[in-house]
Write a protein that binds this DNA or RNA. Structure first.
Ligand SMILES: Nc1ncnc2c1ncn2[C@@H]1O[C@H](COP(=O)(O)OP(=O)(O)OP(=O)(O)O)[C@@H](O)[C@H]1O
Length: 660
DNA sequence: ATGTCCGATACGGTA
DNA sequence: TATCGGACAT
């Protein structure tokens, strides 16, 4: 395929965006209007105009989105596209930190993930026995939110944990302890990676000029989900690089991570001479699907100014199925999928959207039971699962024997070792200069078996062989892990180790291997899947941004889920929930099937402190004309139909007695 | 008294 | 699947 072919596929507005000569552009467009397509076209166009691919940097939200865009550009340009970079903000920043390590003066450092952070907070929180502090995870969320939004701590505290305001001082103490511990141990958390780079870029024009060679053209996807910290990364490039951002404020669903659609709304004020373009026609869905999506935004007290029009015209009406409980809901979906597959549809044309990773697991078991091939995206990732981390902890220790958190994980595996004992030992190890010294000390500590200690020595010899190292670590831990996870799907967990080994084979050393997947975690299915295998996609809505399928099931559309019970009564959070549902609905191309449970509960609308009405359940006033509604009784395969229009060819039935 | 184990329980989404 | 709180062991 050629570039001309790609440009020919665009409509005039998309064409204008893709080929613009403006320095800075913001493309605003509703769901399915071709934002991603425009980014792909923009990158391809620039390259075809002679821009070296390595000067183009595309910012995406996930590794999947990144590789999809690159693949699509390559489809059109082939080898010519080589060197084009698409990555997440975090990966981009990390590579800058590595590239200019000297300038940042960070020396050796390790990137820690959320679990490590929570563990640190848990230990530090435990030291304060006087106060009833928030949970470790809450402390971390608050800490991270404050940094990502670049707000004052007291404001973030009042918003996040309003009833803990009087604990401000002890909370700050824990956070400061966390920060100094990070510094001592040379850990960088997710936010550090962004903030170091952002701060430095804003201070040093020389660094900006240095970095510029690889991002003379900055293309930002999903702009509505960037936060103020990320904006401060883009800001220094204004006037130097070409900014090309695309987004849709009605799809902003990462508020919990500090996403701020001011990054869209205030674009024009912040960026001199910014060109704002809009795309209006939706190419993805049929009109009936857009009607119900439009309706959802229209009943909002906010004015989203969105009314999607289908380029494709009319199609099938959405369906709404109400089932007795979560099992029947999951089974119904599985059965419906089977029916469609029998009729000749491919599995891969179907996607099931769920609210939470937890809800996804219920559906997963129904799919397994029905023998339907699937991939699950979202929720706990492969390298995040507990048993994998247990094994990796040994490799982490070998790579850096001062990795206290890895020691914690490793030590607490053994019987008779808990948080306190492990923590004492681990901080002792920080004083030692070599792993050998730690091991000598460890031998005096009777609770770790000699075989595990011996394994460390073996690992030291083969550090560069990642896959082999995994094998050694696994052998050493096998027995203990089997004991620890005896009632928890041990056989399934064992299979995961094979996947990890597969993944590891592609990497040169342990540190690089772990680091890559900390920043862009990869799910079981993504490792497992052979390319182009025909499977149903089961996915959390948050991971589903930018994807589409012919047939979409939106599961768990029950009371208490949309909006989620936790956000009830909070105006802004409920609006974000609305957008989550909106994103889900607008993934469907041809058919939209919404399922929910009949919970026999009702959630009342509330008034917030400003006197605004806050909806309790989005689908309570769904006009019957917008979809076919079906109520399934418990264990009932037949259906009671509420709203149903007469099918073609069926005449009004004759009634009465047969007098014959 | 302190640390560990174990079972009950509840579960929002992300890099 | 991670966390919490109480039972149990040291
Ligand atoms: N000009 C066009 N002609 C035909 N099809 C198009 C055109 N533009 C986009 N499409 C198709 O519409 C669908 C949606 O496009 P795309 O994913 O780029 O939209 P999007 O704006 O990124 O959506 P979302 O915001 O929901 O992620 C894709 O299947 C794409 O191929």
């Amino acid at each position: 395929m050629t570039i001309q072919r790609l440009l020919d596929e665009l409509n005039p507005e998309q064409y204008q965006a893709a080929t613009t000569t403006a320095q800075n552009t913001l493309v605003l467009a509703g769901a399915g209007c071709g934002k991603t397509k425009t980014i792909v076209a923009r990158a391809a166009y620039l390259i075809s105009q002679g821009v070296p691919p390595e000067q183009i940097q595309i910012m995406t939200f996930t590794r999947r989105a990144a590789s999809e865009i690159v693949t699509r550009v390559e489809q059109y340009l082939g080898i010519q596209a080589q060197g084009l970079h698409a990555s997440t903000f975090h990966t981009f920043c990390l590579s800058i930190l590595r590239r200019y390590a000297k300038a940042f003066d960070l020396g050796q450092f390790n990137v820690i993930d959320r679990d490590d952070q929570v563990l640190m907070f848990r230990l530090l929180r435990g030291k304060d026995k006087q106060h009833e502090l928030p949970k470790a995870a809450q402390l971390l969320d608050l800490y991270s939110y404050t940094r990502n939004t670049q707000t004052k701590f007291s404001e973030a505290l009042a918003k996040h944990l309003p009833d803990m305001v009087e604990l401000k001082e002890p909370i700050i103490a824990v956070m400061k302890a966390y920060e100094s511990q990070k510094r001592e141990r040379a850990y960088l958390d997710y936010d550090d990676i962004l903030e170091y780079v952002a701060k430095y870029l804003n201070q040093s024009e020389a660094l900006v000029d240095q970095v510029l060679y690889r991002c003379r053209y900055l293309l930002v996807d999903e702009m509505q989900d960037t936060n103020p910290l990320q904006w401060s990364l883009l800001k220094p490039f204004i006037g130097k690089a070409h900014l090309f951002c695309v987004g849709d404020d009605a799809q902003s669903i990462y508020g919990f991570r500090g996403a701020d659609f001011q990054n869209i709304h205030a674009f024009q004020q912040r960026v001199p001479d910014a060109q704002i373009l809009t795309l209006a026609r939706n190419y993805r869905s049929t009109q009936e699907i857009l009607d119900i999506s439009n309706w959802l935004l229209k009943i909002s007290p906010l004015d989203y100014q969105k009314e999607l029009q289908a380029y494709r015209g009319k199609g099938l009406a959405p369906q709404l199925h109400t089932l007795a409980n979560e099992f029947e809901e999951a089974n119904w979906i599985a059965q419906d999928l089977k029916k469609r597959h029998k009729k000749g549809s491919a599995w891969q044309d179907h996607m099931i959207l769920v609210r939470s990773g937890f809800a996804g697991r219920q559906i997963e078991s129904a799919l397994v039971a029905a023998d339907i091939p699937y991939q699950f995206i979202g929720g706990v990732k492969l390298l995040e699962s507990a048993h994998v981390k247990d094994v990796l902890s040994m490799l982490r220790i070998v790579a850096n024997h001062k990795d206290e958190l890895a020691w914690m994980r490793f030590l607490t595996l053994w019987n008779g070792v808990g948080d306190v004992g492990a923590s004492r030992l681990a901080s002792e190890f920080l004083q030692f200069d070599t792993l050998e010294d730690c091991l000598t000390r460890l031998k005096k500590f009777s609770k770790v078996p000699a075989i595990a200690i011996a394994a460390f020595q073996q690992l030291l010899q083969i550090q560069h062989l990642v896959s082999k190292s995994l094998e050694v670590a696994l052998t050493a831990l096998q027995e203990q892990l089997e004991h620890n996870y005896r009632n928890q799907d041990w056989s399934r967990r064992q299979r995961d180790f094979e996947l990890v080994k597969q993944l590891a084979e592609r990497h040169m050393n342990v540190a690089a291997f772990i680091e890559e997947y900390v920043l862009e975690p990869i799910s079981h299915s993504e490792v497992e899947r052979e390319k182009d295998k025909d499977v149903v996609t089961l996915i959390t809505i948050h991971s589903a941004k930018g994807t589409e399928r012919q047939v979409c099931y939106v599961a768990n559309a029950s009371v208490g889920q949309f909006p989620h019970a936790r956000s009830q009564g909070d105006f802004d959070e409920v609006e974000e929930e609305r957008r989550v549902l909106y994103v889900a609905l607008t993934r469907a191309q041809n058919e939209l099937i919404i399922t929910r449970q009949n919970l026999f509960t009702w959630v009342k609308d509330q008034l917030d402190p400003l006197g605004r009405v806050v909806t309790g359940y989005f689908l309570s006033d769904l006009p019957s004309g917008l979809c076919h509604e079906t109520l399934h009784r418990r264990g009932d395969q037949r259906q009671k139909v509420w709203s149903f229009e007469r099918e073609d060819g069926i005449e009004k039935p004759k009634i009465g007695i047969d007098w014959d």
